[in-house]
Design a protein around this nucleic acid. Sequence first.
DNA 1: CTGAAAGCGCTTACAG
DNA 2: CTGAAAGCGCTTACAG
Lengths: 345, 345
Amino acid sequence: MSDSKQKKITIYDVAKYAGVSPGTVSRTLNQIGYIKEDTREKVLQAVEDLQYIPNVAGRTLKTTKTRMICLAIPDTSNPIYFRMIEATLEVAKRNKYSVLLFYTNGQEEEELKAIRILQESTVDALFLVHFSYSKQLREMVSRCVQPIVLCGMCSHLWLYDGIERNFDTISIRVYDAVYSATSYLISKGYKKIAYLAGKRGIEVYRQRYEAYRQALSDGGIPYNDDLVYWNSYDESGGYAGGKHFFSKGIFPEALCASNDLQMIGFYRACQDCSKEQARHIEFVGVDNLEISELLNFSSVDIHEAEVGKNATELLFLRMNEGFEKLPPQDVFINPKLVTRNQKVY
Amino acid sequence: MSDSKQKKITIYDVAKYAGVSPGTVSRTLNQIGYIKEDTREKVLQAVEDLQYIPNVAGRTLKTTKTRMICLAIPDTSNPIYFRMIEATLEVAKRNKYSVLLFYTNGQEEEELKAIRILQESTVDALFLVHFSYSKQLREMVSRCVQPIVLCGMCSHLWLYDGIERNFDTISIRVYDAVYSATSYLISKGYKKIAYLAGKRGIEVYRQRYEAYRQALSDGGIPYNDDLVYWNSYDESGGYAGGKHFFSKGIFPEALCASNDLQMIGFYRACQDCSKEQARHIEFVGVDNLEISELLNFSSVDIHEAEVGKNATELLFLRMNEGFEKLPPQDVFINPKLVTRNQKVY
DNA sequence: CTGAAAGCGCTTACAG
DNA sequence: CTGAAAGCGCTTACAG
């Protein structure tokens, strides 16, 4: 039954079996041009009898189309990326494309590798979520002939300025996200508002930090550096933030976190803290994870599924239209604050 | 600067530029055999000058190696799959492989498509998480010459029985998971234990359901069909379960959910319910999602990251060793109950 | 409507 | 240590 190890069936075997040429088999299978019904049946019968399955590498070499796109994201530990993956998979599938998933860990070196995957023609297009804005990365991108969409998970630094550019960008207005989050806390009367800033040196978090400061300033609240904590942008960073503040005897009235994972970490630190003051801190985060909803914490929805959807659709638009007909695109996504009545914890 | 549209640089261009043969360029780049230092430098200089990047399709056609594996999972909405993706990505990266992510939606048709991707040689190996155990799927698998690891997210139905088989399996003992979860509730003295069973007709949930019944039986508690609710295996299913029970005036003392998402859904239904009896139900789920930990619900850890890691390593083992030297493998993963002191909600 | 032939861009025995 | 040549499995103008 399972006679493996037999020689691989190629289009030549099918052609011979059906008594036609390889070209005819190819045209039949790819539905190109008219094929006489009789011929067509012979071919399909041969395919069936021989259990022929076309080899993708052969086709790819000739057509230069892989029917794959690459999705490169920083990490897989933040749920927002899963919603992005899901959206990308869906758009790709709709276009009969597969998705190569690449995980950069937010490191420039890995981001460059993702671009190389595109240059080697392993995939037809690339959606790259990157943190680096280096000259080298920019140059590697500019050398690519295939479609690329760049997203920095914030307002992109390389917006179209009229100068030639061979990629599209997608931006999340995270400045607005944090500004609205901080303003919300101010509007509720809080003065002592701590901030979990995320990781220093990453543009995403720089933009958010600026927004926090501006919101304070606009709300007439003096900035206090002691209320700001820079660390990793995951749960452990938030937890460390809580420990840090509490150990210094700092108990803020409210906390704005540059993302929800940090907020959750901070919340855990509160739970681990014996002081009564750690029980009444009001939270606002960014990302609107389901976990925030369940814990009834306010958060800002950044619509990351929309990001994935838009980016991927842009990729297909470029694959179909090329870069001549349409100028470089810069898509913007507007976050939305979701307020909730936080419970006592 | 960005002079695109120029003709693609091939290995022939590099050879001509360096004054050597294409074969030598290939050997230099792939570090095969000894190359005179002088030659080597000329080649590398040419590569540098011409910005040559080897085309993957050409290599693949010749070597029949794509350096990609396919990971096919049911859906991306359950966080357990993300931990699996993460583990798979890591093992693949360590072996210098990329991962093609395929989303089957738990439908047989899509599972067959995943196998076809392997047959077309788009990838070198396949890790398939499947729900279907149909004859057709089994036959398609048996026709593949490349490595395949099959996982049903439960005790696999196609374990090695000495008869020829060309794939490995990985099993999660979910029967034990639900048995221990149910027994735990019984040990705490509960008699009226409801069960969110998941989706009917899926082996994963059949095995769990059997465990629930057996645990009740072993605990001397009569089975009551009114306490069992079959629906979708996501949050909406759990929510519907809560609504269902409460609308019939059924308020269990405890709830065992065949996965955490359903448990969370049920919990939401409790929150939406005005009755006091909906405030004191003790929960146990399966999957041990972070959300369960944060809400302090007990759950069973099924070690899905281990599943991804083991499966992917098995794939590479097969790619290196073939199927002759090693008999078919059946790996088992043992879940672990994590108990927590649930808070009042 | 279909066949013969070239070629996509590599790699790899085979010589030397 | 390196070159010439064949070939991996397709597709696609070009004829007819």
